[in-house]
Design a protein around this nucleic acid. Structure first.
Lengths: 198, 198
DNA sequence: GCTATTTTTGAACCATGATTCATTATTCAA
DNA sequence: TTGAATAATGAATCATGGTTCAAAAATAGC
């Protein structure tokens, strides 16, 4: 018998994130991922069925983490609703702080992955969304958020804005320092662009 | 001598938008674009150097239109700054109202096109951004917009939110009716989620 | 109608790169 | 120490699809 040495699956995933971030999913070459992971090309296939399963696994990992965290926030009765949004921002930014490449893959590839393999896309995505909407509903109920707005539209808008900033930061960290992004983002979400009356 | 019949270049672009929207740039097949355009595969290449020039042409068209329109808005002394944002929203949504496919290509493919062919990407993109920032600066100067925020961050956030909503609408128009998207978007941009005091 | 010129055609070419699989290496249990 | 049994290898396979190009078709001027 021969046993598997090391955590190759993890190594592959990490290598894949790097390569996908750099060249995009389609241009990414399996042999390059293998090289980066320090294994042979063929070995990839004893850990993943094929290329698409690799990217699906990456998204599963990200959304699983995000869902677990938003679930905690949602449940909390300590935090005022309005601050739950802050917590979500922090949580998303923190998740990617140490890993720009993951941020890039997360933002750049999601659209086509969801389109191309809708059946196999991680269920944590849906769960995350539902939970987020729950928070918004809570805020409206408490009279803290504007009523009459569409929750769907709000969440799509916010997520889009956040994503866009993630790419910007990951691509040009100097120009978009995370600390500023964090603060400005929280401000815009709460108050929009209109100046606050003193 | 033989003269070219019809506007094949236009036909190719329109077909390409459809095909890119449906399958994404990478999975899109040239022969399918040709078929849709009603010409032979090889003919594509007497109008465009290659596949990438086609998608670059699509982006050039969109950003040119957007730039021309934002330039008019920016110049206007009639419209109050705060309403210039409304005008921009209207202008973007109107541009895509008749063409969901163009919206999808615009949002889904831009990231990788800009990354893969940064040199050849339309100059109207930059021009649009600069003009947009000019409007924000104007708003801050007039004391209408919050000061102390990063214009770069703001514009990235807004654009991301808008794009995200465009895809949502183009993919599920029933769930995201353009009229609602339009109103809610304007509201969020101005006031964020916090409830307005009566 | 005829010819020169340009457009259009679409089958063939060819590069690319994901995936396979026969071979080799490694480990554990006996 | 030996030999199943499984892991790892990477060269070969094979499908895909962008691009080319020789041939055919269409047009305008004569």
């Amino acid at each position: 018998m021969r046993t598997r040495e090391g955590n190759k699956e993890q190594a592959i995933l990490e290598a894949a994130v790097k390569v996908f971030a750099e060249s995009g999913y389609h241009a990414a070459k399996i042999h390059k991922i293998a090289e980066l992971a320090g294994i042979a090309t063929g070995s990839i296939y004893s850990y993943f069925q094929n290329k698409q399963q690799i990217i699906l696994a990456i998204f599963d990992g990200v959304w699983r983490q995000l869902y677990q965290q938003i679930a905690v926030v949602e449940q909390s009765t300590e935090i005022p609703v309005i601050q739950k949004f802050d917590a979500i921002i922090d949580m998303v930014l923190d998740l990617f702080t140490e890993d720009k490449d993951r941020a890039l893959v997360f933002v750049n590839e999601e659209n086509h992955v969801m389109r191309d393999y809708p059946q196999e896309f991680t269920p944590y995505f849906e769960k995350f969304m539902v939970t987020g909407e729950e928070i918004v509903r809570q805020g409206i109920k408490e009279g803290k958020f504007t009523e009459g707005i569409s929750i769907e539209i709000l969440r799509t808008y916010l997520l889009g804005g956040i994503r866009s900033l993630l790419v910007a930061w990951a691509t040009e960290p100097k120009k978009y320092p995370l600390s500023h992004v964090r603060e400005d983002l929280k401000h815009f979400i709460r108050h929009g662009i209109t100046r606050q009356q003193p």
